[in-house]
Design a binder for these strands. Structure first.
Ligand SMILES: [Mn+2]
Ligand SMILES: [Mn+2]
Ligand SMILES: [Mn+2]
Ligand SMILES: [Mn+2]
Lengths: 215, 215
DNA sequence: AATTAAATTTAGACAAAGCTAAAAATTATA
DNA sequence: TATAATTTTTAGCTTTGTCTAAATTTAATT
């Protein structure tokens, strides 16, 4: 499988996890910053290899084979992110681009040994689940902070937006995975929040609250 | 720089280290298991980028820029091999092919952090030197076992042939980097050797002796 | 020196993956 | 329902890196 094929599978996998319905050509093109015509070409190719179910004009979905392949790429991506953060001391906003490269390294033995070396983690540095060697995922119950109400208390367990900018903002506010967050006030006008993180009280916009997963 | 360009540079670098003279198109083709015409095409491209000095029909050599680039790829290859052996517990005959992939990962920060994580090793699992971030190499004095004479004693510090088959043979004979080797007898008829490795006495062919570096 | 052999380059073709522009199908709207 | 807007596909072209076959250059041998 080529890098490009792997990237398409991964993108379809990620789009599926949010919408559930069949994925449109344009949605893939937009996410991958490529042209719809290129997507069509690749969908034919993936369909030929039985990795996706593709009907002209109707969108695509992953076959079981394609889904497993996608999960293995996600597994590699997230394990490498763990390695970079936990062993090489990278910060969580620096690892994604490097993992985008490392996820394409082909060696089952390597990834399984890496998994063991890291102590078989179930989540990556952004709180996202790591599929095991069989593609199984441990789902963790979590809600967006924006769905919380006044006086509720939770633990930050993940981020929805994993952009470097957002992660650096969280660092600045001293919000990390494991931080306790208490809703002090919810402003009805703009849906912003007054929250307590550890000992500090801060105000965050609704956009921020909509990208933080809490349990 | 593409994977392919990197592989050509690396090949030219390795061929240079044995012959010193300009490298021929055919030598590159043979080493890379490709066709001479493909090599010619790539040499033009590398020459255009000032990575090699290339004169039609006359062979190539690396420019300073090309040599440094090649060294950085070799650096990555050998550091990853160290990682695989020392941290992930691979054996020395399993790591080359995986390192062939990992050597193309682009991130200076990654490779320098990996270097630190490994304790800044100067040699890879096969006894080959690891260039530092500036491309400097610590040369170690070493001779082929085949050049040794009766009664001489030395330490195994490297292998010339790094094929899996040869490395597995050495494992079987319990010869590893650091093993003490004493020449008991040199058979003049076929240039085979009777040697002592640790407590054991074994006979090795000249071909074996010509692929073991001793200090 | 002339001829032959070997090495190297050129010419032309192909597959992968991308693009633009035009055609076709689907969806939305009047 | 007919028309317009949007989405998707097709057709044709480009780049990268490879190949085969033919042409050219260099090296080796009479
Ligand atoms: Mn990531
Ligand atoms: Mn992640
Ligand atoms: Mn190697
Ligand atoms: Mn090595």
């Amino acid at each position: 499988m080529t890098f490009s094929e792997e990237n398409y599978l991964k993108t379809i996998y990620h789009l599926t996890s949010v919408s559930d319905a069949d994925i449109s050509t344009n949605a893939i093109a937009e996410k991958m910053e490529t042209k719809a015509s290129s997507v069509t070409d690749m969908l034919k190719k993936l369909s030929e290899k039985d990795l996706v179910n593709y009907i002209k004009y109707q969108g695509v979905s992953l076959t079981d084979k394609g889904k497993l392949a996608a999960k293995m790429i996600v597994r590699k991506h997230r394990l490498w992110e763990c390695f970079l953060v936990e062993k090489l001391d990278f910060s969580w906003d620096e690892v994604h681009d490097i993992a985008e490269q490392l996820e394409h390294i082909k060696s089952e033995k390597l990834i399984n040994k890496l998994d063991d070396f890291l102590g078989n983690p179930t989540e990556d540095p952004h709180g996202d689940p790591i599929p095991d060697a069989q593609g199984r995922i441990i789902k963790v119950e979590k809600q967006l902070l924006s769905e919380f109400e006044k006086n509720q208390i939770g633990i930050c367990v993940g981020v929805k937006d994993t952009s470097s900018d957002f992660l650096k903002y969280l660092d600045k506010q001293e919000i990390a995975l494991g931080s306790q967050i208490e809703i002090i006030e919810k402003e009805s006008f703009d849906s912003s929040f007054r929250i307590r993180v550890g000992t500090k009280e801060i105000t965050i916009s609704n956009k921020i609250a909509s990208n933080l997963y809490i349990k």
